[in-house]
Computed example of a mutant assay.
Amino acid sequence: MKATLNTISRREFALAVSTLAGGAAFAETPSSDKLGYVLPRRRLGKTGMMVTRFCPGGMHIEWMPNEADSQKAIELSIEKGVRFFDTAYAYGRGRSEELYGKFLSPKYREHVQIMSKTVGKDAKSARQQLEGGLRRMKTDYIDLYLMHAVDSVEDGKARIQAGVLEELRKAKDEGKIRHIGFSGHRTPEAHNWLLEEGFPDAEAVLMPINVADPSYESFILNTLPRLMKKDVGVLAMKTLGNAGLLGGTRGGVKGDPVGTGRAVVPQLVSVRDAHRFALSLPVAAIVAGSNDLKQLGENLDTAKNFLPLTPSERDAMIAACAEQGKTGEMEFYKWQGMRPKRT
């Protein structure tokens, strides 16, 4: 049985999360560089990278209403202290990477770190996406490159057998990638298999971290302690459940009108506190999407003014969301009814 708050004791939860969280964010100080103010940085595990604790989601940079707003989002992030940026080939079939090549790399590359990802299912497609990304972003290297959106143990095995991981290792040896890892959001089972067997040299992992997660097939409970033990860098995504905590049922859906649906944000938990929850755990950064410039500004202010939750505050937030979170439907990307059939 997968660990949830229904199947483990309060003491076990404290050992798995609270103790680990103690060192997550509390030796941080803001700094500055030639561009100005820099958000507090955290160590990304064994990579040794020091990353700003907020990272704008690259899909949402591409989703901005127009190119001018995409540029403004990049500029606002820089102004507010971001030095770590997310993207992937899958975000507009390279369009997000193109925007970085147009508006990020030419002015800021020496000051920022970039994470990108491949959804390639074999060595050839992974290499094509990597080389294409380098061209599109107008850079010679990518700081962190992930095997993207691993859905299951079977998916991970298939990609590795088809040479994807070997190709990432080759690219790292070539200096085109500095650090490698993986991402996924469907099941902690896949993450744990990769960590223990399929991809033991993973340096960083991107996974869901939110207030509903502990109540259903939890990445926080099942995978986070393994990552900490292995000193693998942890990056939090889906801090609002990809709009699921807002009542949405698909990625990008804004959710239910306030007070009318099953949303827990903002009825029970504010957006600000949902982000505080993730940042209060041992994660290096939250990778958070913003639908528009106003929302991005609010998220950047939360990151700048972050205050860690106490254990009791964190527990209260989890409890408030537990009833609606226990079926997994709120986290629709890992809900049983949303999963592809296994072959």
Rank of each mutant, 00 (worst) to 15 (best):
R42M: 01
Y141I: 00
R95M: 08
K117S: 05
G48R: 10
G261W: 13
H191L: 14
A162P: 03
E323M: 08
R169P: 05
C321T: 06
P188I: 02
V253L: 06
A316Y: 00
D173R: 14
V164M: 07
A320I: 00
R109E: 09
E166L: 09
M49H: 07
A21M: 09
K157I: 14
I61L: 15
F13E: 14
L246K: 07
H111Y: 13
E217M: 03
R262I: 12
V82I: 05
L293V: 06
R11I: 11
E79V: 06
K341N: 14
E174L: 14
G57E: 05
V258K: 10
M338I: 02
E154I: 09
V38A: 05
G198A: 10
G156K: 00
G251N: 01
K138I: 00
G133Y: 08
P340T: 10
R42Q: 15
G181Q: 05
T87W: 04
L224A: 00
E98D: 13
I114C: 01
A316L: 07
L309G: 00
R272Y: 02
G325F: 00
K326W: 01
G23I: 10
Y216M: 02
S116G: 09
S31H: 07
A3D: 15
P214S: 13
T19K: 14
L206C: 00
D33Q: 12
G255R: 10
E189C: 01
F85Q: 07
A204L: 08
N305Y: 06
Q161N: 11
R339W: 10
A278T: 05
K102F: 02
A14Y: 13
M237K: 12
R169V: 08
F219K: 04
A263K: 01
S77Y: 05
R95A: 11
G163N: 10
Q113L: 13
V51A: 07
V82N: 05
Q129V: 08
S9M: 08
S18H: 13
Q71D: 08
T139F: 02
A90D: 06
N192Q: 14
V253Y: 09
P311Q: 11
D151S: 14
A24L: 06
G175V: 09
R314Q: 14
K157V: 11
A88D: 12
M237G: 05
L235W: 01
H111T: 03
K107D: 15
Y333F: 13
I177D: 04
E12F: 04
P65K: 13
T249G: 10
G261T: 07
T327K: 04
G337Q: 03
G244W: 04
V253D: 15
L246M: 15
R276F: 03
T327A: 09
G92K: 11
N192K: 12
P214K: 01
V253P: 04
P208Y: 06
S183K: 00
D33G: 06
N242T: 12
S183P: 08
A90E: 07
E298H: 14
K124Q: 15
Y216S: 07
I74G: 08
Q129G: 05
V211I: 12
S116W: 00
A243P: 01
Y333W: 11
G92L: 09
I142C: 06
